[in-house]
Every structure is written in structure tokens, then in C-alpha cells.
Amino acid sequence: MAQAAAPEAPARRLKLVCPAGTPPALKIAVDQGADDVYLGFKDETNARNFAGLNFDERSLREGIDYAHRKGAQVLLALNTFPQPATWRKWQSAVDRAAALGVDAIIVADTGLLAYASRTHPALRLHLSVQGSATSHEAINFHHERFGIRRAVLPRVLSVEQAEKVVSRTPVEIEVFGFGSLSIMVEGRCALSSYATGESPNTHGGCSPARAVRWQETPRGLESRLGGVLIDRFAAADHPGYPTLCRGRFVVNGDTYYPFEEPTSLNTLELLPRLQAMGVAAIKIEGRQRSPVYVQTVTRVWREAIDACARERERFRVRPAWQEALAGISEGRQCTLGAYHRPWK
């Protein structure tokens, strides 16, 4: 556990929770000052079940050891929904997590939360964003029934709504600070499985790579997902990965992005507000991203959170931070997402 308790740290300093898709990313995140790193096993028990990502037992043991020596905590994501045929695999993943000594597991499935709280009462439980708890009452339900200690807020609430949630629950609240933006309520989106048979809820991934096809046609480069045409690009375009909700479709003859344009979430400028309202932790999305991404984003957010703790309302976002983050954003365009709602 974190022996290096920081006595001078302000009581409310935000924790920085960083993605560790691979062992190198874990080391980089810890070295750059992450308070928590989150990761998953190499299978569909977590929502970033991608080839080449995640940890087996040995690398997880080494990762935990490395993080703990440097005072960081390791959170294991078990945030997909086990189905009858695979229930035992998830159950065993909870048991392995407890045996390996992770600091918390991040869980979405109600049955799995019940199992973990009953079987491993000492294991700290975080409610995953996939648990779709969008109100303090939903969060308190999980607290009362399963003793969750932290909840990750879905990326759909405004700052005002998030503030109300924080003030009405004993559960620590973690919010997304940076990364890819989910337009649908997490845990409530089956678009991917509609086209491909696999979704974040069931298989730990949205718009799976095996279902993607690229094809040059006289009308341009076409991207398909499960056979469904997601987008068509002219030579001057930057073709993006065919995530279903970022596709261009046709409504009444208009071809446009009916759901969203490719953008990234970046809430640096909200830091003083998030800190003042009592948010416990800021989550950085991107276990599927490169070590360079993890390095940049962890370094910038560490500096920013520390500056915010010192400067409070005098805190200003440094242009160099925004520049560094812009260089690693998807779509190269950052927004405040639901926190500030230009579309409201």
C-alpha cells in the first residue's frame, strides 16, 4: 500500500487516475506521478479487451509491486457484464484480483458486485462508469448494498449535476478529465453489438477491429463495421477508426455526423471547480493508447493538479499543457464534453 503518505498534501488534492494498457505504460504512468493506475486482465473481463493490451498474472504481480514501491495504487477493471456461460471466468477474475493484492476492483455488473462484497469483504470496490449510475441515489444504492467506496460518473452530467452528486453521497466520486469522449451513456449502448455482435457490455470492446473493413472505391475510401458502411472519405480527409457513433450517415437526404464529430474530452480548465466541489479523482481515458500518450497526459495532468492544489482559484491553464494535450488528442479538437453543454 502507499507507505509514502504525503503529509503536506492538502486534504482535498485530486487523485490522478491513469490508464495502464501495458506494463510499460504502467511504469511510465507511475513514474510521471499517477496516484492510481487502472488496468485489466488479458480477456473480455474488462472494457478494453484489445489484442496486445492488458496483463497476465505475472505482469500484474510485477506491476503491483512497481506501483506500490512508488506509492501508487493499482485498480483492476472488471467492468464488463458476465453472461451465464462465462460467469465463472469473471468470478475467478475477482478471486485472482483479491489474491494478487490489487488495491481495488472496478466493477459494473450487479451480480459481480454482490459476489465480490460477499466473498472478499476487504477488497475495495469501485463502481465502473459502465454501471450507469447517473444520480446520487443510484450511487448510494451501490454503497448501501455492496459497500462501494468510489464511483466513476458517466460522461453525461454537467458540472452542476456532478456537484450535486458529490455533495449527496459518502462515496468518492471520480470523473473523466481527458480522452476519448463517449456520446452514449456508458453501459447503455448496444450500437456496436447491433452491427457486430460485440459490445463494451458483453465483450469489452466497442466497434471491434475484427469487424472493420477498409475498401478503396470510386467514391472514396470506405470504412465498414460488420458490413455496415460507417463513413466514406475523400482523399483530403483524415480517415478515422469506424467507431459507430462517429460515423457519417444520411437523415432526410443530409449526410452528416448524426451523433458526434470526432473530438476529445479535455477538462483542464475545470480543475479548480472540480477540486472545490470535492471530486476525489480525475480519470484519464486511454488504455488503448501508446506509452507516449500516457507519458504526456500523465505529466501534464500531474503538473496541473499540483498547480491547482497550490493556486486554487488563481489557477490558470498553461498554454504549454494545452499544446501538449492537443498533440495527442483524437480528432485534434478538444471539448469540455457534457460538463459544459454547448448543445444544451
Binding site: 457484464f81 451465464p84 455488473d109 450487479t110 459481480l112 454482490a114 450507469s132 448494498r145 453501459g187
Partner: peptide, 30 residues
Amino acid sequence: DMAAVRALAGRMPFVAGPFLNVYNAATLAV
């Protein structure tokens, strides 16, 4: 949603709706 479950729990029989993500027997048992 789970806020509604909390409001109904132990008070009266209710229907667990399609958005509660009941994917397994353990969840249904809860």
C-alpha cells in the same frame, strides 16, 4: 435504473426493466 430500484426495494414487487443490465443469474438474484 438503480435509483428506481432503490426507491422500490423492499416496499413492493417491481419489474426489473431492460436497462438494468441483467446479464446473469447473480444479478437477477440480487
